[in-house]
Design a protein around this nucleic acid. Structure first.
Ligand code: MN
Ligand code: MN
Ligand code: ZN
Ligand code: ZN
Lengths: 144, 144
DNA sequence: AACCTAAACAGAAAAAGTTTCTATTTAAGA
DNA sequence: TCTTAAATAGAAACTTTTTCTGTTTAGGTT
């Protein structure tokens, strides 16, 4: 389990709660909001409160198991990240608008230091949306 | 005033409140959060409430006078947009991390329909941070 | 297997952010 | 000037998020 070693390496504990959260993200089609995850956890953990969910989501995002998804308006959402977000491993994510599948985008078009419009680039936020291959197949089948 | 015609074209009214908001954005170095803007408006409009500020920020963003800045974590922030965000005029913004100056980035590296990591791209969110030319000069003067 | 300790936990509470509602006022066209 | 759709204030409700405190637990150590 990649996620488990990320947790350990960060000096965090691998609790039943966190295992379950990761499992829910694995099963889920698409990014989850705190309330949504809380809803799903309540079945297995009736005493689980929303504050704990927030705490764990942030902890898991900080250690690279999850990433914070942008582009859902004001909604806060997280999704599994299959590779840790280290400085040495810069990447972005593309999310399927149909099924929620997350793709790692290794190639980045924005390089720190490049000049853009007279500015020297020092940081960037990129969040992509698209249609994944399986969903593209379904699309063409549906209309064919 | 470009902003004023944008407001008119959207069928909105050009109220003193909105004039003042635009003026504050012009004067401000950097994007503003609703509470920050409210704080500044209270001097001139003592009876101005936060709900009205939210309403107007959204109205001005919808008609293209402002844009919603991403990349400030969970904070909601807006800034002046010097060109309307029409489909025909796609662009992004780069914000100076030193002074808050906003640059329009006309060239976009992500084209709808292009294939990325097996996904067909259908949308993207890009928010850039950088150092503007004047601030770069100041930087080099300071260390020289 | 029984400790030990830092971390995680639940739950309440507070704080912050945001939206909704209604009655009143106003911008701007006729 | 008259008319009307839009903007406004203010209260209230609502949602989201954080903080706090005391209790429990994971995981390493003995
Ligand atoms: Mn990732
Ligand atoms: Mn713009
Ligand atoms: Zn898909
Ligand atoms: Zn600058």
């Amino acid at each position: 389990m990649e996620a488990h070693s990320l947790i350990k390496d960060a000096g965090l504990k691998l609790t039943p709660r966190r295992r379950a959260m990761i499992a829910h993200f694995s099963l889920s089609s698409g990014p989850l909001a705190p309330v949504e995850l809380h809803e799903r956890l309540k079945a297995e953990f009736p005493r689980c409160g929303l504050p704990g969910v927030y705490r764990n989501l942030e902890a898991l995002a900080d250690c690279g198991v999850l990433f914070r998804v942008a582009g859902f308006g004001r909604e806060r959402r997280y999704a599994l990240c299959s590779q840790p977000h280290h400085e040495e491993h810069h990447h972005h994510h593309i999310i399927c608008i149909s099924c929620g599948r997350v793709g790692q985008v290794e190639e980045c078009l924005y390089q720190e230091g490049m000049m853009i419009d007279g500015f020297r680039l020092v940081g960037h936020l990129v969040q992509l949306r698209g249609v994944c291959a399986p969903c593209a197949v379904k699309e063409s089948e549906g209309s064919g």
